[in-house]
């Protein structure tokens, strides 16, 4: 039993990271109806910026703050420069553009920082809490704490600020929002900036667990997709729940299903995506969209 709970705890740690990545995807989807295939690569790029700051001698938390600011600006810039021109284009076009962005950002990181693996500092102390036979690593506690903090901040932003109200208005109905005087274009850019920031947090959290290299986020992105699909692409809370479920399911499947083992774990999100799409396409918390011709 203790072994099982231990696995669940490990899964929670991984799940929190998937949740934050899924949250970034969902933020963009809500505002622009786009699934951003480059989200993981943007997060990876942000992580490199953090690494560069630390390597230049900044203390970790200062580097993180700087990274988040740069990521926010970068996300807005991407929306303005790259996504804006294809706004309202068919899905095929937009998917291809974000895939282009994916390839470009991935290669650009390789160009600037080479494809060699880099060590990323772990901001949390070594060691673990002992809770009745289960050891919970400080880094797991830290990851859960940071992700929870991000959720709370986003909740406050959306529910209790004017900007958040405007953003919700744009997500619900862009044309009505424009009519009441909200600057829709800038709000969309703001959404992308926020998503890039949340993505950067997940990149920085996961980099000490994996190794920092340009292809770091490829697998994470699939887990995040699974999380967002499970929770519903239009539900931020769903993304969080989905992320946690995916993380726990992945860890348990890897530990207890002999056939899956550690190498086929990437099949778990694939199964989740397929299963959800066939049984409940809108996800656990999403709204079913009724299409009118």
């Amino acid at each position: 039993m203790a072994g099982f709970l231990q696995q669940v705890v490990e899964g929670l740690g991984a799940g929190a990271i998937y949740a934050s990545m899924a949250l970034a995807l969902v933020l963009i989807y809500q505002f622009t109806g786009i699934v951003n295939f480059a989200q993981g690569e943007l997060a990876m790029f942000s992580t490199y910026i953090a690494w560069q700051c630390v390597a230049a001698g900044l203390p970790f938390w200062a580097a993180l703050a700087l990274t988040l600011v740069v990521s926010f600006a970068g996300g807005m810039l991407v929306e303005r420069l790259i996504i804006r021109p294809v706004e309202g284009a068919p899905e095929l076009t937009i998917v291809i553009v974000t895939v282009g962005l994916f390839i470009f950002v991935n290669a650009a990181a390789g160009w600037i920082w080479t494809f060699l693996i880099k060590d990323f500092p772990n901001p949390f102390p070594q060691g673990a809490l002992q809770l009745g036979g289960i050891s919970v690593g400080f880094s797991t506690v830290g990851v859960l704490g940071v992700v929870a903090l991000v959720m709370v901040l986003l909740y406050l932003l959306f529910q209790h600020t004017r900007i958040g109200l405007g953003m919700r208005a744009v997500a619900t109905n862009p044309s009505s929002a424009r009519l009441v005087g909200i600057r829709v274009g800038w709000t969309l850019a703001l959404g992308w900036g926020l998503a890039a920031t949340v993505g950067a947090v997940s990149g920085v959290l996961i980099a000490p667990l994996l190794f920092l290299e340009p292809n770091m986020m490829g697998g994470v992105l699939i887990y995040a997709f699974a999380a967002a699909t499970l929770g519903g692409f239009d539900s931020p809370a769903g993304a969080v729940v989905g992320g946690v479920i995916v993380g726990v399911a992945e860890t348990l499947a890897g530990a207890y299903v002999g056939f899956i083992g550690s190498d086929l774990k990437i099949g778990v999100p694939l199964m989740i995506i397929l299963g959800v799409l066939l049984l409940r396409p809108q996800g656990l918390f999403g709204r079913a969209v009724v299409e009118r011709a």
Partner: peptide
């Protein structure tokens, strides 16, 4: 550069979708 093909591919895809679908 080892990364140059990716940079070229990525930029070209985006550019093609804008100007020459």
């Amino acid at each position: 550069n080892d990364a140059a093909p990716g940079v070229i591919f990525g930029l070209l895809i985006i550019a093609v979708m804008y100007v020459a679908p």
